[in-house]
Computed example of a mutant assay.
Amino acid sequence: MKDLTTENITENVHAINSQCQNPRTRYIFERLVSHLHDFARETRLSTDEWMTGLDFLTDVGTISTDLRREMILLSDTLGLSALVDSIDHPRTGKSTEGTVLGPFHTHDAKEVENGYAIHKDPDGTPLLVLCTVKDTEGNPLGDVQIDVWEGDSHGNYDVQYPERDGPDGRGILFSEQDGSFWFKAVKPVSYPIPMDGPVFNMLQMLGRHPNRPGHVHFLLKKDSFDPLITALYPRGDPYESSDPVFGVKESLIVDLLEVTDPEMAKKYDVKEGTSLLTYDFVLVSTRETLKLRKEKAEEAIKKMGRSMEDFQGLPILDVD
């Protein structure tokens, strides 16, 4: 590795990295290094710009904690999270589309019964969320674990409050045998991404607004089915067509209703006139997902004029 130049350094890095024994890892790093080096050559990256980028990534890592995931937020705002979700979790026409996890998911939500009020927010507009879960054949799915979370009426998640002493606006439910689950929440409102961090500064530099449309997050899991990370967005939010994390999809925009039937209000222990969100989630089996993932990979790679090998269900393309 002597006499390295701008033209031969890439192949030298590949040669050193080729000692990696895992084919998929070796392939990922081969492509990563190639694209990084090509980016530097194409943009004629200056030392000052390179250092600015490194400082930015350092700041993203420094501000991140278990409760604040700035690195996820960076991935979200660059569209990478949405892209990876679409690639790794392909959906059939019958199934519910996924979206970004976001930076505010935690692992301390409590298991609660159906009908539980996930919020302590006294200022929020009450919302009854009434949903079902089925497979792609229309069969109800019981015992699905549903992790739900949302911000409060002020546009903040519980983890954004310094005095947080436990989870709020969160809960883990399980669907009944008929596939139904329900809980009480507050009507979601639009809110900005955290404005005290490097990702917000990046958006400002790019002339982008930081405001996400109001939504409720859902993470559904059941054995033999592909996990579904998604969210529902009440229609009419001013930011639904310019979400800074690229999470909104037309199939996930919902029209809010109202509880008008006295019997329904009594059954779910809410007042008449309470806002109502209903949705039928459809999960894809693991087998269907693996088949779809392989088909879509082969289709995409064929368009690139490349060939591929399969390694533990993941593709390894031929190297340029």
Rank of each mutant, 00 (worst) to 15 (best):
Glu7Leu: 07
Asn8Glu: 08
His14Tyr: 14
Gln19Tyr: 11
Gln19Arg: 15
Cys20Lys: 12
Glu30Trp: 14
Arg31Cys: 08
Arg31Leu: 13
Leu32Arg: 12
His37Trp: 15
Asp38Trp: 09
Glu42Asp: 12
Asp48Leu: 05
Trp50Pro: 04
Asp55Pro: 02
Leu57Met: 14
Asp66Met: 11
Met71Trp: 13
Leu74Arg: 04
Asp76Pro: 06
Thr77Glu: 04
Thr77Ala: 04
Val84Lys: 09
Asp85Cys: 00
Ile87Val: 13
Gly93Ile: 03
Glu97Tyr: 10
Gly98Asp: 05
Thr106His: 14
Ala109Asn: 10
Glu113Gln: 10
Tyr116Glu: 03
Tyr116Val: 08
Pro122Glu: 05
Asp123Met: 03
Leu127Val: 00
Cys131Lys: 03
Thr132His: 12
Asp135Gln: 03
Pro140Gln: 00
Ile146Glu: 01
Asp147Glu: 04
His154Gln: 11
Gly155Pro: 08
Val159Ser: 05
Gln160Phe: 14
Tyr161Trp: 12
Pro162Cys: 06
Arg164Phe: 08
Arg164Val: 05
Gly166Asp: 01
Pro167Tyr: 10
Ile172Thr: 04
Leu173Trp: 06
Phe181Cys: 02
Pro188Asp: 00
Gly197His: 07
Val199Gly: 00
Met205Cys: 07
Asn211Ile: 15
Arg212Met: 05
Leu219Lys: 13
Leu220Asp: 04
Lys221Asn: 13
Asp226Lys: 12
Ile229His: 14
Ile229Val: 11
Thr230Gln: 03
Arg235Val: 09
Tyr239His: 12
Pro244Lys: 03
Phe246Pro: 01
Ser251Gln: 09
Leu256Cys: 04
Met264Lys: 14
Met264Tyr: 11
Tyr268Pro: 01
Asp269Phe: 08
Glu272Lys: 14
Thr274Val: 10
Thr286Trp: 11
Leu290Cys: 09
Ile301Asp: 03
Lys302Thr: 15
Lys303Tyr: 11
Leu314Ala: 08
Asp320His: 15
Asp320Trp: 14
Asp320Met: 09
